[in-house]
Amino acid sequence: MAGNAQEGRTSRIGNVLIRAAITLSMVATLNFVLFRVIPGDPAALLLGGARMSVSAERIEAQRQNWGLDRPLFPDQILDYLSATLHGDLGYSFKFRGRLVSDLIWERLPATIALVGLAQLIAMLCGVMLGLYAGWRRGGAVDRIAMGASLALYSTPSFWLAMVLVVIFSTALGWFPGYGIYSPGASIGSTDKILDYLRHLALPVAAVALGLIGQYVVVARAAMSDVVTEDYMVTARAKGLTNGQMLMRHAFRNAMLPLVTLITLNLGYVVAGAITVEAVFAWPGIGGLTVEALNARDYPVLQGIFLLLGVSIVAANLLADLAYGILDPRIRQ
C-alpha cells in the first residue's frame, strides 16, 4: 500500500517534470528556429545591426569564430543549447556589445517589484472578494463584484493604465505618470523610497486591477462549485455556523483549483505587465521588450522569451507541487 502510494507520487512528479522539460525544449527550439529564419546573415546583423555594412572578411572571420559556418543540426543547435544553459544569451543589436543576460538582469528587479506587488494585492483582494461572492451567490456583493470584474477582465491593462494616468496624474496630479524616480536633485534615502513608491502606485494599480477582475471570476466559480458539494450539506447538518462552514470546509476546497489557476496565470500577468510598463516607461522587462521590438533587437527579444518561458514553466512546477501538498487525494 505504502509502496504503491510512493510509486504513484513518484510517477506523478515524473510526469510533471517531463511536461516541464518538453515545454522548455519547445521554447528553446522555437527560439533557435526563429532566430535562424530571419533573413540576412547573423554575423552581419550582430556586427553592424541590420542597417550597417561591414567588410566581408570581418564577417567571414566572425562566422568561423561563432561557428556559424558549421551545420545547423546538430552542431549549431547543440552549441546554442549549451550556451543557453550556461546563461549565455548572446549580444544585443541595439545596445551594441552588451550581453543580453546583463540587460535582462538589470531590468528584472523593476518588473519583479511591479508584478510581485500587483500579484500580491490582486490575490488578497480578488481571491477574497471572489470567494465571498461565490459564497453569497446572487447577493448584492456578488452582483456588483461580478459586474465590475467582468468589465475589468475584458479591459486591456495598458488602457486601464492610460486611464489611470489621465485621471490620477494629469488631472488630479496625485501620482507621477511615468518613470521610476523623479528626475532632479539628489534626495535622502527615505524620500527616495517614498518617491519610488509613488511612482510604483499607478503601474501596480493598473496591473492589479486587471488581475483582480480575473481572480474574482475564477474564485467565485471555484466557491460556487464547492457550495453545492455534499460535504457542505454535511457541515450544515452538523449545525455549523455559516462562518464555520466557510472557514473550515469551503475555503480550503475552493482554494485547490485556484492554486493552479493563479499560477498558470503568471504568463498573463507578465504579458499584462509588459504593456503597462510601456505606458509608464517603467524600466523593467516590459520596457526592454518595447525597445527591443522597435529596434528589432532579436537577441534581446529571444532572451526575454526564454526568460518568460522558464518562469512560466517554473511557476507551473510550483503549482503542481503545491497542489500535491494541499490536496490529499493527489498527495497519496
Binding site: I22, T23, G267, Y268, F305
Partner: peptide, 18 residues
C-alpha cells in the same frame, strides 16, 4: 500543453516580428 501554458500574447510577441 505547450500552447496551454505559453500565453498567446507572449508567443505572438516573438513570432510576429520575425
Amino acid at each position: 500543453d505547450f500552447f496551454f501554458v505559453m500565453p498567446s500574447f507572449v508567443l505572438a510577441l516573438v513570432i510576429t516580428p520575425v
